[in-house]
Design a protein around this nucleic acid. Structure first.
Lengths: 242, 242
DNA sequence: CGATTACTTGAGGCCTGTCAATGATGGTGG
DNA sequence: CCACCATCATTGACAGGCCTCAAGTAATCG
């Protein structure tokens, strides 16, 4: 028995805009099921044309793109509440892959219902554009970090972003948030080598600013972290939940 | 007297999906005017909340984000047919600026009409999502290039992308396309220094692969360029025109 | 207990940034 | 018409951040 959208635990978090009960009731009709996956499993593959859309209920994952020579660029990190597969829905194929970095629980929507949503629920369609815009914004920020910041700064920026996003999801306990990724994931996201990424993390740990081990990130000095990031801390805007 | 959407010269190009005459007629009601700007002028500023949306009719521009320390990341290059300002429309403020790199002619839509479009023309709203998805895809590709490729490769990739996009816009004359940007723009897009970017361009010129000067890019050996780019030449998909 | 995966740490070299100087071009004002 | 200035492109020298190679530790697993 799956959770009804009306009772979706995500709705209360600061990260999301409010949703009325009637909206939630409609979304529930749109919803076709739930799915649980192990960490390491590939949800969507580059080049495939997926017929389903997902909203993440629990767990985390990565989006990434692979090059001919085996290099990998991590496009983004997928957290609870994130909407996955919109690209596949409107363009016919995925341009990147998605993999679970921890056990995940996903809410499944059917692609073929998407059109009904546009026709009958323009407000929800509008939210969809909003979500797409937020995603574009996150990508812009990542591009800026990768392009303009040096190693120390970009690692700091990334940890800060994780800390903020996860805090907004109520996952902050005592300045500690879960972070079930590998150092290689972060390195591939920032365009740094694994070795160098490791050294930046070691420096942050030595300086008592932040430490990340065993899948948990502890931030001991947010201001120092923000300082090293060298990037305007653009606040996270509430976004609609799909 | 402005051009009617029915007669929009952009419609015929390979870069865009077909649009029926009746669709074009509706868009014409959505359109509120045209605007011409000089090169160097700022169309939209970071942090501002624009009330208008634009489709580029002629000319080119850049999207960019500026950091506290004056560094600049070029987010993307705006070509004819591109839709500008969607982010400002759904989130309330722009997260990046837009500047004209050549004289531009823009088609103006009113933000307040956007809602009407969602309510009464779901197919066009769907196209809007499609456009947003294409933009996201371009950003992914750029992020991958900046993160994973070295100088020679990323410069080659960028020139190749320009060549393909402009060719799809019927601006290719004898393997030569207009490219009214500065080397600094390209450098800021790729996260390279101006000096190094210049040296990569010099190498491509010396090797007889491509030469860019006086606002014109000539590609003498597309295959060699593609070879140096080291990235899958994902084809440009036709996209809807707004 | 060997094999695998992830994390750490050190050493050396190259790609790329910074500094600096020069040319080329075009606009401006006397 | 020419000196002057601003912008952009070009080229060389040098230093440094980051990559690659390599080796070692720790934890998990069959």
């Amino acid at each position: 028995m799956t959770t009804k959208c009306e009772n979706c635990p995500l709705r209360e978090f600061a990260a999301f805009e409010d949703m009325t009960d009637s909206e939630a009731k409609y979304m529930d009709r749109f919803k076709v099921g739930e799915m649980s996956v192990q960490n390491g499993s590939e949800l969507l593959a580059e080049g495939a044309n997926a017929t389903q859309l997902y909203t993440v209920l629990e767990g985390m994952g990565v989006r990434y793109k692979t090059l001919k020579d085996g290099k990998r660029q991590v496009i983004g990190f997928i957290l609870p509440g994130d909407f996955v597969g919109l690209q596949a829905a409107v363009m016919d194929t995925m341009q990147h892959s998605v993999m679970a970095s921890s056990p995940m629980k996903l809410c499944i929507f059917n692609r073929s219902n998407l059109w009904d949503l546009f026709k009958n629920h323009p407000d929800r369609a509008y939210d969809l554009v909003h979500v797409a815009a937020v995603e574009e914004y996150m990508l812009c920020e990542a591009l800026t970090a990768v392009g303009q910041l040096d190693g120390m700064s970009s690692v700091s920026w990334a940890l800060l972003r994780f800390f903020e996003r996860l805090t907004a999801l109520n996952l902050n306990r005592n300045n500690q948030v879960p972070l079930p990724y590998k150092q290689q994931d972060l390195a591939d996201a920032l365009g740094l080598s694994l070795v160098h990424t490791n050294k930046m993390l070691a420096a942050l740990r030595k300086d008592g600013i932040a430490s990340w081990s065993d899948g948990r990130l502890s931030v001991h000095d947010v201001d120092a972290l923000r300082n090293r990031a060298h990037m305007d801390p653009v606040p996270l805007l509430p976004r609609p939940l799909i």
